[in-house]
């Protein structure tokens, strides 16, 4: 969509906190997995219609500033509701144990995360290919009039895309909640990692994002085991290296 949304990390954080609240109230992780993405998609749609829509014309800077304002608001709202301390929830029943696979031990929940990631990635790729969402969005970003002539209702497409993105971020937040800590500030760390992944993979490419996350994830794990002090540095070194060779990312479109 050609929009830089710094509040995307906030959606992730809010998703995790919704999971926390739902699990505390009903003790059902699966309900949270259903509720959080829907709520966030609604939130995303509302924000798009009320705020972001006015800003597409104004360029990236206005978007950055607006969404930065929202990150401040969200993190403060979360802090006022849940306090600054770190929370956590247990994995859902049945996924709390360990699994033996190929002679190595994995936590069942890690495998569940892997499964969700593969599933979402595959669905995205299929949707991108066969529903031509990518083509429609690209047409909308590059030539608004033309897209209008082709009978595409762009405002609706943009709202739906934004809502879908927010919902996915929320889903990620729920899935991450039992594995990682839930705290105000988790929005920033995930946002930066997501940005690095997108930069490495290339903007406007789902495949790129998948390749990018694999590369960065691998880099992070290797980095942590080899020189724990500089694991973060290694990730950025990967990014710098990719940029030197291919400024538009591994699978990005050349601009």
């Amino acid at each position: 969509m050609d929009v830089l949304n710094l509040a995307h990390g906030s959606f992730y954080m809010v998703g995790a906190y919704i999971a926390y609240s739902v699990v505390v109230a009903t003790n059902s992780f699966w309900l949270a997995l259903l509720v959080a993405p829907v709520l966030l998609a609604l939130l995303g749609a509302a924000l798009e219609v009320v705020f972001f829509r006015r800003l597409y014309r104004h360029g990236h800077l206005a978007q950055v500033l607006l969404t930065f304002g929202f990150t401040l608001v969200f993190v403060d709202l979360i802090r006022s509701q849940f306090g600054p301390t770190t929370r956590s929830i247990a994995p859902p029943p049945g996924l709390g144990g360990a699994v033996e696979l190929f002679g190595a031990t994995f936590s069942a929940y890690s495998l569940f995360i892997l499964g969700v990631a593969i599933g979402v990635g595959a669905l995205l790729l299929l949707g991108w290919r066969f529903l031509r969402v990518g083509a429609v969005l690209r047409a909308g970003v590059e030539d608004k009039e033309m897209a209008g002539l082709l009978g595409i209702n762009l405002p609706t497409v943009f709202t739906l895309t934004f809502a879908f993105g927010a919902g996915l971020a929320g889903l990620a937040g729920v899935v991450a909640a039992p594995e990682f800590a839930i705290y105000p500030g988790m929005d920033a760390s995930v946002l930066i990692l997501a940005l690095v992944v997108v930069v490495v993979g290339g903007l406007g490419s789902i495949e790129g994002a998948i390749v990018g996350s694999a590369l960065i994830g691998l880099g992070y794990v290797i980095g942590t085991s080899l020189f724990p002090q500089f694991a973060i540095g290694l990730i950025f070194a990967v990014m710098a290296a990719v940029l030197i060779v291919r400024p538009s990312g591994l699978l990005g479109r050349r601009s």
Binding site: D2, L4, H60, V64, I192, L195, V196, V198, V199, L203, Q229, F230, A231, I232, G233, I235, F236, M239, L243, S248
Partner: peptide, 20 residues
């Protein structure tokens, strides 16, 4: 948008260095 993302990423890299 790329410039924004890159400066953000490099900035956080230095922050990570300062922490680690």
């Amino acid at each position: 948008i790329y410039f924004l993302m890159l400066t953000l990423a490099f900035g956080q890299m230095l922050w990570g260095l300062a922490v680690n």
